[in-house]
């Protein structure tokens, strides 16, 4: 029960809301609070972290190629231990991470995991499967990755 609105506020809402809705339609939703997609598009470089020991499967390569194509960027790959690579992703020093990650890993709360890449059956939460990870809250970037993996 948030404090009730006065008649003036009602009128304000009736003007503001439709124009707000129009402006929503005009720009792409969702956007990234830390601006990952804008940065990749503007710099033309996608900083890709690959977790040591993970080899990209066919589906992951296709997803990555589509993301590079849509952002007009080239990959700059860095390999490393999962702790190091994911910590750098969390800090925004890397744009995208690829690795075999289990859904019940503690990292699933620190960063955002994509859907499994190239798996037809649903994997158990404890099983590490090939997937990408992005910084938490970068919803536009996550959407782009998801559309690219279709």
């Amino acid at each position: 029960m948030i404090s009730s609105l006065s008649g003036g506020a009602h009128r304000l809402f009736s003007i503001v809301l439709p124009s707000f809705a129009l402006s929503l339609g005009a720009c792409s939703i969702p956007r990234d609070p830390s601006g990952t997609m804008d940065r990749v598009e503007q710099s033309g470089t996608l900083r890709l972290g690959v977790i040591e020991g993970a080899e990209m499967n066919e589906a992951s390569r296709r997803t990555l190629a589509r993301v590079l194509d849509r952002t007009g960027s080239r990959p700059e790959t860095q390999r490393g231990d999962s702790e190091v690579v994911l910590a750098r992703l969390k800090k925004g020093e890397i744009d995208l991470v690829y690795g075999e990650l289990a859904m019940d890993s503690p990292w699933s709360r620190e960063v955002a995991f994509s859907a499994p890449q190239g798996l037809l059956a649903k994997a158990p939460k404890s099983e590490p499967v090939p997937r990408f990870a992005v910084m938490n809250g970068e919803n536009g970037w996550l959407m782009l990755g998801s559309e690219a993996s279709k």
Partner: peptide
């Protein structure tokens, strides 16, 4: 300063934003 992740969801073969 927690950044909430609201990702995609696939329904009837279409991927849309869960928001």
């Amino acid at each position: 300063g927690e950044h909430p992740t609201v990702g995609p969801v696939t329904m009837f073969g279409e991927t849309i934003w869960l928001g």
